[in-house]
Structures are given as C-alpha cells and as structure tokens.
C-alpha cells in the first residue's frame, strides 16, 4: 500500500470538534432537537454495530473491508449526532451508547434486524442508504446549524454506501438462480421495516414546522422513484407486504435489539470508565 498519504488540512466536522465547540457554547440544543438527534444517532449506531458483525466473516476479503468502511462511516455519523444530543442532557456519546437500556434507544426497527445472509444485509443496507441519502440531503439545509453540518458531511459518505448496495442488488439479482433467490428473500425479510422510515410522528412534525427536522413522509417519493425500478431491473420482484412494523422512535423494538445492545455494551458496563 502506498505510504504517500496526503495529510489534508482537515476542516471536516468530527465528534471531537463538535464536543469542543459545544463545551464553550451557551447555544445548546433544546430537548426536542436533542431527542431528534438521538434518534438519528441511534439509527446510525445500531446499523454500524450490525455491520461490524461482518468483520472477518464477509464472503470475500474485499467485501469485508467494504462493509467495515460503511459501518465505520456510520459510526462516525452516530458519534456526531450522539455528541450533539448528549450536550442537552449532560451526557457524553459513550454514556448514551453504553448506558441506556433497550426502551431508551430510539432507532427505527429496520436497523436492528439481524444480518442474515449477505443478500439480506445488502437488502437492509440498500433500503437504509436510500433513506439516509434523502434524509441527509434535506437535513443539510436545516435551520439547526449543527445538524446541517453533520448531515452535509454524512451525505457524501452515504452516496457511496448506496452505490455499493445498488451494485450488489444488481449482481445478486441477475447472477445465478441461487443468488436471485437469496436477494429476493432478503428484500422480503426487510420490506416490512421500510415503511417506518417514512412515518411522521408528532415531535418530528413540530421540528419540521421550525425548519429543523426533515419530514419523514417527504422522503418517500425518493424511495419510490429509486427502489422499485432497481428491484425490477435486477430481475427481482417488488415485495408486497400486508402489514408493516414500527415504533422504534418511541422505544418499541423487535427481539433483535436486546442481544445487539448486550454485546455492544458489555465491556463498558463491566469496566466503567475503562480506556486503553
């Protein structure tokens, strides 16, 4: 690997720079904005944790690195959102990540779903990425400067995540009979959780009215314009669901979140304040 690393003078927003600017600021987010940021942070954190489960288990070494990259990007988004959210509650990003229990997590249920096989992970990540691309583009124009800055940086990264997933949906859909079957199954499993991403709730709606939050229902057309045509062009069938899941923003979760949190939190809880 090349060692001619370009050490670009970084002006990119980081969790550390956010914490630093908030420490000396009297302009902290109110509880409504902080709770919104917490939901966004939990979405990214839980999905990143799931992607981390692929490390050393992906079908190919190259895909191992690709999924790890995507997961680390999302962990970065989570850290930024949680740092911002925590400033309203006097908590650090670590305190929010490691010392909240299941009902206090506000992530949408899609993100906590088990990885399943590779196709199922790609189905979940594709749906998630379409959502993130539309969400972060909208949020980059938020009246809340910090949310806008975090979203503007994240938007470039999720563009790439979406591209990666689109490539794989096509290849698995148009590959062999077995890869097609698995990709179709992945879509079927994840489809019931897509609707929740675009469901409005009262706290978000009041922030939408202030130009701070992005209306979830406003993101639906972007999903409908991209995903069904992609599925059809990949030789797959758009799933039909008769019921949908949801409630993550209110702390309602599927049975999958508990074990995920147990694994994520065990070390920090067994050794509070440990560092290396």
């Amino acid at each position: 690997m090349s060692h001619s690393t370009n050490h670009i003078a970084s002006t990119a927003i980081t969790p550390e720079s956010i914490a630093q600017s908030l420490a000396s600021s009297s302009d902290l987010p109110d509880v409504a904005v902080a709770t919104y940021a917490l939901g966004l942070g939990d979405d990214a954190l839980v999905l990143a944790q799931r992607l981390g489960e692929w490390i050393a288990r992906a079908p190919e070494l190259e895909e191992d690195v690709a999924l790890g990259n995507i997961g680390l990007d999302q962990l970065g988004h989570a850290r930024s959102f949680l740092t911002y959210a925590g400033s309203a509650f006097g908590k650090t990003e670590d305190e929010l990540a490691y010392f909240r229990d299941e009902p206090e997590f506000l992530n949408h249920q899609l993100f906590e779903q088990p990885n399943g096989d590779f196709a199922q992970t790609i189905a979940k990540q594709m749906i998630a990425s379409v959502y993130f691309v539309a969400l972060y583009r909208g949020l980059a124009a938020s009246n809340d400067a910090m949310l806008a800055a975090i979203a503007a940086k994240a938007a470039k990264e999720v563009d790439y995540h979406l591209d990666h997933c689109v490539q794989w949906v096509k290849r698995l859909g148009l590959g062999t009979a077995e890869s097609n079957r698995r990709m179709q199954r992945g879509l079927e499993v994840m489809w019931a959780f897509a609707d929740e991403l675009f469901r409005s709730d009262a706290p978000t709606d009041s922030l939408v009215a202030l130009g701070i939050a992005v209306s979830p229902s406003s993101l639906r057309p972007a999903f409908d314009a991209l995903v069904p045509p992609l599925i059809v062009a990949s030789g797959l069938t758009v799933p039909v669901t008769t019921f949908t899941r949801g409630g993550g923003r209110a702390g309602l979760h599927s049975e999958s979140l508990g074990p995920l949190l147990a694994e994520m939190q065990v070390l920090a809880r067994a050794h509070p304040g440990a560092s290396w």
């Binding site: 690997m1 370009n6 690195v65 990259n69």
Partner: peptide
C-alpha cells in the same frame, strides 16, 4: 475502499 482510505 482498499487503497484510498487515507486520502492517497
């Protein structure tokens, strides 16, 4: 993903 991770 493999060769431009550090802005190479």
């Amino acid at each position: 993903d493999l060769y431009t991770r550090r802005a190479e």
